[in-house]
């Protein structure tokens, strides 16, 4: 019984570690912030969850370890997407550039179409720009 549990724990932890390492390598190697953010949010969560399941399996479902592991999993699943969203949005607004090879920027295309549509809004654009420079 115990050997089976050890094997299962080892396999689950190994799966989690593989995902974690791939996420870390992605954060190291990806070309721009947005790609790195998606590495951090998806791959790292995917790396954490099997490891937590491994802990639940190894320590038994009714132990304190399992309870804390499930709380950590729930918190990761709740807070990680929100933080990634806030970070990506902030990075875009702060003007962090995309990778040169990025093929699609929907927001920019949308804004270009908007600017063609509404000429009267050109009036307050330069002011916005100046503020942006002042405030970073």
């Amino acid at each position: 019984m115990s050997t089976v549990i050890v094997v299962v724990v080892a396999v689950l932890a190994l799966v989690g570690l593989v995902f974690s390492v791939s996420g870390a390598v992605g954060i190291l190697r990806m070309p721009d912030v947005y790609c790195r953010i998606q590495c951090s949010s998806k791959t790292i969560t995917m790396g954490a969850l099997p490891a937590l399941v491994a802990l639940v399996v190894g320590e038994g479902f009714e132990s304190a370890y399992a309870a804390r592991a499930l709380i950590v999993a729930a918190l990761l699943l709740t807070v990680n997407p929100a933080a990634s969203h806030a970070l990506a949005r902030a990075a875009y607004r702060a003007g962090v550039p995309m990778w040169d090879g990025a093929v699609r920027d929907d927001v920019k295309a949308m804004k270009a179409a908007e600017a063609e549509d509404a000429d009267h809004r050109h009036g307050d654009r330069p002011e916005d720009r100046r503020e942006g420079e002042h405030d970073d």
Binding site: V33, R36, L87
Partner: peptide
């Protein structure tokens, strides 16, 4: 950029 550091 700062965002990269935050992610890491």
């Amino acid at each position: 950029s700062v965002s990269d550091r935050i992610v890491a």
